[in-house]
Structure formats: C-alpha cells, structure tokens
Amino acid sequence: MVQVSLNGSRTAADGAAVPMSPEALVEAAVGSVAAGAAEILVHPRTPCGRESLSPRVAGPLLAALRAAVAVPLAVSATVPGEPDPVGRIHAWEILPDRATVDLAEPGAAAVAAALAERGIAVDGVLRPGPGGGPAPEIPYARLVVELTAADPALLRGPGGTVVYGRGAAAWPVFRMAVAAGYSCRTGIGDVLHLPDGRPARSNAELVSAATALATGLGGCPADQGRARPA
C-alpha cells in the first residue's frame, strides 16, 4: 500500500509543486490516486496557509476530496499551536477515515481518545531512536514509523505498519520498507525529489515513481483507488 502525503508541513516557499489551495489539493489527490495511491494524507490549512483542525477548514476540504476520490482520507491531528484539538475534533461534522497523532507530543492520549470516540481510526506516529517507542496508554489502530535512515534495526511494527522517511532519507527508507513487506508513504509532504534526484513536479509524479519502484522491488501495492466520475 502506498499512501501519499499531499502537503505535510510544506509552505509555498518550498516551491510550485506544493498544493496549497483546496482546489490544488483536490487536483493533487485525483492525480495521485490515478498514479497508484491507495490512501490520501492531507494537512488542512486556512487561506493564509496555517494548519488548522477547525471544522470550517477541514470539513469543506474533506468533502471536496471525498467527492473526487474513492480512497481512505487521513488528516494530521497533531497541529502545532492548535489551542483546543480535542474540542475541534468533537466539533467536526465531516469526518476523515483516519488521523495521525504524534505519540511523543504532549496531549497525544487525549487527542487519540477523542478521535476514537468519533469513530476515526488513529495512526500513531513513532520516530524510533534513543528512548523512543509508543506510549502504551495511547490507543492507535495503526503504527506509522518515520525513519531518518534506512537502518533495518529501526524497522519495527506489526502488519499494516506504514513506514516512511523525509528528504534525503525518503527513497532509501522506501526501498528498505518495500523489501521488508511494509506499507509505505511518499508525496510532496515528505520529499521534493524523485529517486533519480530530479525535482518532483507533482504528488502524482512521486506516487508513479513509488509504485514503479515497489513493483521493481517485488512489492505488490494495493488495488489502486479510482477517481469518482464527475
């Protein structure tokens, strides 16, 4: 399974490939699904580009994405500076299928519990390292592991675990994770270059490269989602 991170913490300063507006994110999602993405991860943003869990920001974006693609949608529920993430989650009228929670962040348990109460699957983000590891009191449905290097000693997690790297680590980690049988993540939110070092022009181009690489390594990506007809 290849998940695509459409925007992550990127801003317009990171280049024209970063989709910023809801319209650009929908276009990126449609292209990514057509290229082989089986899940979409998005960071909802206000018109000024600030990440937000506000139902007035997340709701319309999720509605537009759901009308355009027929794959599971995930949002990041760990937003720096969000004043009341639990309250925001309980105020959502349009729900994502999944939400990521950084297990190391203060308040992660409360956020995960709020998501679970709304029936949203929790993806617990773990960054292995000294003293690292998921907090056992935090409920999560799936583990998402971010690695800074393609080190097999850091590769861990049960079936269904999603593994990814950022920047220079992205493609080496991807290759290692596919070879080990894990689901993987790519996208502008994580990496701005293709496996051969060329700048990526879009999320779809990254997903296409990822699925081709997975196939070449013997991986078997999940059935591709299909864009819904207009």
Rank of each mutant, 00 (worst) to 15 (best):
Q3P: 04
N7F: 03
G8R: 07
S9G: 14
G15S: 10
A16Y: 00
A16S: 15
A16L: 03
V18C: 13
S21P: 15
L25D: 11
A28D: 07
A29V: 05
G31Q: 04
G31C: 12
V33A: 09
A37C: 05
A38I: 03
A38H: 06
E39W: 02
L41S: 09
V42W: 00
T46C: 06
P47E: 05
G49Y: 12
R50L: 08
R50G: 06
E51F: 02
L62Y: 00
L62K: 13
R66S: 12
R66V: 04
A67L: 08
A67T: 07
A68V: 11
G81L: 08
G87S: 11
I89D: 11
I89N: 09
H90K: 09
A91Q: 15
I94G: 06
P96H: 04
D97N: 10
V101C: 09
V101Y: 08
L103I: 05
P106M: 07
V111C: 14
A113T: 11
L115F: 03
L115W: 01
E117R: 15
I120A: 10
A121V: 01
V125I: 05
G129K: 12
P130S: 14
P130V: 10
I138R: 13
V144A: 10
E146H: 11
E146A: 12
L147P: 06
A149L: 02
A153Q: 13
L155D: 01
R156L: 12
G157W: 03
G160Y: 04
G165P: 07
G165V: 01
W171E: 06
V173F: 00
M176C: 06
A179E: 06
A179D: 00
R185L: 05
R185E: 04
V191Y: 02
L194K: 09
L194A: 08
R198E: 09
P199E: 04
A200P: 13
S208G: 15
S208L: 14
A209Y: 06
A212T: 09
A214Q: 05
G216N: 10
A222V: 01
D223S: 15
R226E: 03
R228G: 13
